[in-house]
């Protein structure tokens, strides 16, 4: 594989085509966005169009009955509609959106995108709806608080970086007659791991390098717990403080797991296509992690030393997810 193509997916439904490119220029991607007139669009909503019909009806009543007060109501409501443009706009203006984080996910799962919404000069913002096309949507009001953190879920596609596309933020507060909205690109992306795929071949085991089968107990630094003193335990490890408090004689027990560590090796799957290999490796990484064993990863150009725990799993899966994926926009 020569030039690594950027493998990203955009969720269907977000603006594309010419409008998308125009949006790209007008509202460029950024980790945090403060909404101003360049970014906010406004148009009568469906109830707003019905409201205009109602105005027409009242106006016709006024004309046919030659009724000046009916005229007055028609004009008052028409002006209210115009004033509502400003109020609806003000409900969105000044808000700022910040990208906080995105969780990694396996294909077909949903990634959790965390955003923070901060209020502007106005004391309160009501009825803000946030949605990623194709993902979940949520409604939030900022009243008596400066900011709110929200989680939105977006289904992810295949391995690599997943860009959820533009986020829709809309509101029709206060009257619901106008819809005010914006599309923001928060420059958030979620890592999509390879799809785990079981394989009969066990990659590596404790192959090649004899990875220390036994680790000297004293050499370990990992404090594990106490256990009752047994004859032969080093006096240096006796928990003297406990003894002083009147507890039974105990020794500090250090972690000294001398279990074997496995290598997940790219070369263990000869003749299998790239994606499938990664899927197998991913499967085994999960298996080892579940089994509580140390495991390392060897990919062309990458090597991760054996360990276990969440951090190790994340390291390994990230390496697998980003294998031969262009590191654009990082």
């Amino acid at each position: 594989m020569g030039a690594a193509a950027e493998v990203t997916q955009r969720t269907p439904g977000s603006p594309g085509g010419r409008f998308g490119r125009w949006l790209e220029r007008r509202i460029p991607a950024a980790r945090s966005v403060t909404l101003d007139q360049r970014r906010i669009f406004i148009f009568p909503s469906l109830p707003g169009l019905f409201f205009l019909l109602l105005l027409l009806l009242i106006l016709l009543t006024a004309i046919n009955y030659q009724n000046n007060m009916a005229y007055a109501v028609a004009f008052l409501l028409a002006t209210l509609f115009i004033i509502a443009i400003l109020h609806t706009y003000a409900n969105l203006a000044g808000l700022s959106l910040h990208a906080v984080s995105a969780t990694s996910a396996f294909p077909g799962q949903q990634s959790e995108f965390t955003l923070r919404l901060e209020r502007g000069r106005r004391a309160s913002h009501f009825g803000l709806r946030l949605a990623w096309p194709g993902g979940s949507d949520t409604q939030v009001s900022l009243v008596d608080r400066d900011s709110a953190e929200l989680a939105l879920f977006v289904p992810v596609g295949t391995r690599g970086w997943h860009h959820p596309g533009r986020l829709l933020l809309e509101s029709s507060y206060p009257l619901g007659l106008l819809r005010c909205w914006t599309w923001v690109d928060l420059d958030l992306r979620a890592l999509v791991y390879p799809q785990p795929l079981a394989s009969s071949v066990l990659p590596g085991g404790s192959s090649e390098r004899p990875e220390g089968a036994t680790v000297p107990v004293s050499g370990s630094d990992d404090f594990h717990g106490f256990r009752e003193y047994r004859r032969g335990d080093s006096l240096r490890q006796v928990y003297w403080k406990g003894l002083a408090r009147g507890l039974a004689l105990q020794t500090k027990h250090y972690a000294a797991f001398a279990d074997h560590s496995a290598w997940l090796d790219w070369e263990a799957f000869p003749g299998i296509p790239v994606e499938q290999r990664l899927s197998h490796l991913c499967y085994w990484a999960l298996q080892y992690e579940r089994g509580g064993e140390d495991y390392g990863l060897r990919l062309p150009g990458t090597e991760i030393a054996p360990a276990r725990g969440e951090a190790q799993l994340a390291r390994v899966l990230t390496a697998l997810a980003l294998f031969r994926i262009g590191e654009q926009r990082q």
Partner: peptide, 25 residues
């Protein structure tokens, strides 16, 4: 240190044989 436990800072209740009750250290 890495082996310091919460009880090492906060203190512990210890069973006292003499008056058969827990006393706080």
């Amino acid at each position: 240190t890495s082996d310091l436990l919460p009880a090492d800072i906060l203190g512990v209740s210890v069973y006292d044989r003499t008056d058969a009750s827990f006393s706080f250290h």
